[in-house]
Simulated scan of single mutants.
Amino acid sequence: MKKAQFLTPVVTAFDAEGNLDQQANRDIYDFLIRGGVDGLVVLGSTGEFFSMKDAQKRELINLVVSHVNHRTKVYIGTACMTVEDTIDLSNYAIDAGADGVMIVSPYYFALSDESIEYYYDQVIGAIQGDVYLYNFPARTVHDLTPEITLNLLRKHKNIKGYKDTVTEMGHTRKLIQTVQSEFSDFIIYSGFDEYFVHNVLSGGNGCIGGLSNLYPEVFSEWVNAIHTHDLGKAATIQRIVDKMMELYEIGTPFIPVLKKAMVLREIGLQEFCNKTFIQLDQGQTESIHNILQEIDELIANHHIFR
């Protein structure tokens, strides 16, 4: 079994005017590092990269790299809508000291397999550092298939891993089976928290899941349970995470729900988001509060931190 990991796709803290809340972002990084996660993914989907100006992205890259200062791994989402902008931002992040960049393919148009491979060929060949592919078909309206991935791996030695944000674990399993006989060190993460154990048992490396913004200590304990072969504890935490997954059902998109939950847990940010996201109503807030209470009770009753 491979070494399991759980990384956090970190939320981005803003102030009321839409500027970066630098201190709140530092506090979040510290909270996650204390919680024991295996790395931070900044400017991913949960980090609202799609609504940020280039100058803000660069400001946040400088902030996270300097503040984390090698205490854990830092990966930066650098996808832009053009090849040139993606290359520029990726190399900026690498030069700033990021451990790698994560790139989702251009969204809006459904691209052919040939177009997806062509896009990544242009981008990856010009990036001076490690690259992680990011597949999110629900947002890009096309699939970065296992076959495309294998083709890319055969051409680009700086591709190190892949995040598969899909609802069907069978897609991730096929990816593992397709590439890892030839590229045994290729890292494959699931994008939904609940698939962590399934991913690892199938030969993957773990998960990059948004709920770890809320309870990083639970997810690091889950990783430890796998490493110590404590399947009873892993199963207990699976049930706790299954309860956490109910938070995804409260609102679409999920980011305002996650930020509200972090505020309720007093993690140290305000709930300001992309201005296109509507504020949660009282009923949604009460639902979040109730689920958090149930999660806290499950954690306390099962004594997972003994």
Rank of each mutant, 00 (worst) to 15 (best):
K3L: 12
Q5P: 00
L7N: 10
P9V: 04
A13Y: 10
D15M: 08
G18D: 11
L20S: 12
Q22T: 14
A24S: 12
A24G: 08
R26A: 11
I28S: 00
D30H: 05
D30M: 03
F31N: 02
F31G: 03
L32A: 07
L32G: 05
L32Q: 10
D38F: 05
L40S: 02
V41K: 02
T46N: 13
T46F: 14
G47F: 07
E48I: 04
A55L: 13
A55Y: 13
R58A: 08
E59T: 12
L60T: 12
N62R: 11
L63G: 06
V65Q: 13
V65H: 14
N69A: 14
R71I: 09
Y75R: 06
A79T: 11
M81C: 06
V83I: 15
D88F: 03
D88T: 05
N91E: 13
A93I: 01
A96I: 02
G100S: 03
V101Y: 07
M102W: 04
V104Q: 09
D113K: 08
E114G: 05
Y119L: 00
Y120L: 04
Y120H: 06
V123G: 00
G125M: 05
A126F: 02
A126R: 07
Q128W: 10
P137C: 06
P137T: 08
P137H: 10
P137I: 09
V141H: 11
H142P: 02
I148W: 11
H156A: 03
K157N: 07
K157M: 08
D164E: 11
D164Y: 01
D164K: 01
T165V: 03
M169T: 05
H171V: 07
H171P: 00
T172N: 01
K174G: 00
S181H: 14
E182V: 07
E182G: 13
F183C: 06
D185P: 02
S202F: 00
G203C: 02
G204M: 01
G204Y: 01
C207W: 00
G209N: 12
G209T: 09
L211D: 11
Y215N: 04
V218Q: 01
V223N: 02
A225R: 03
I226T: 00
I226R: 00
H227N: 09
T228Y: 09
D230I: 05
D230H: 02
L231P: 00
L231M: 12
I237F: 02
Q238N: 15
R239W: 04
M244P: 00
M244E: 11
E246I: 02
L247S: 07
I250R: 09
G251S: 15
G251C: 09
P253S: 10
P253F: 08
F254C: 05
I255F: 03
K259H: 08
K260Q: 15
E266W: 06
G268T: 03
Q270V: 10
D281L: 13
G283H: 14
Q284V: 07
E286T: 15
I288C: 14
N290C: 11
E297N: 15
L298H: 08
A300C: 09
